[in-house]
């Protein structure tokens, strides 16, 4: 019969998902923490140069180049997926 090899623990995945779910559902506010950066303090973060997706169309091409030549995939954010190139 076919054997199954070493069973690597998938616990980090489960813990990460669980943590993400808890934060998403409860919100930090309910953990007793208040927002510490006020809206008027976010001028720098609103500068277009701080946008990681400033050039969306170029980022799509970069992701496609890597996806076609490397085995690593996923966790790039909201975009990507379903390219289906072989």
């Amino acid at each position: 019969m076919i054997e199954l090899v070493k069973r690597r623990s998938a616990r980090p995945l489960a813990l990460t998902l669980a943590l993400a779910s808890v934060i998403a559902l409860s919100g930090c506010a309910q953990l007793g923490v208040k927002p510490w950066v006020k809206p008027y303090e976010r001028q720098r973060l609103a500068d277009p140069i701080m946008s990681a997706n400033r050039h969306d169309i170029a980022n799509r091409h970069v992701a496609h180049v890597y996806e076609a030549r490397e085995s690593g995939r996923g966790a790039e954010g909201a975009g990507g997926g379903g390219c289906g190139c072989n």
């Binding site: 993400a20 934060i23 998403a24 919100g27 930090c28 506010a29 923490v33 208040k34 927002p35 510490w36 950066v37 809206p39 954010g77 909201a78 997926g81 379903g82 390219c83 289906g84 190139c85 072989n86």
Partner: peptide, 22 residues
Amino acid sequence: YLAKSVALNIAHDTFGDLTTVS
């Protein structure tokens, strides 16, 4: 090769807009 895909993404700002959950 023919590839078809459909995606659903949801992003939500919370915690005084300091946090975005997707």
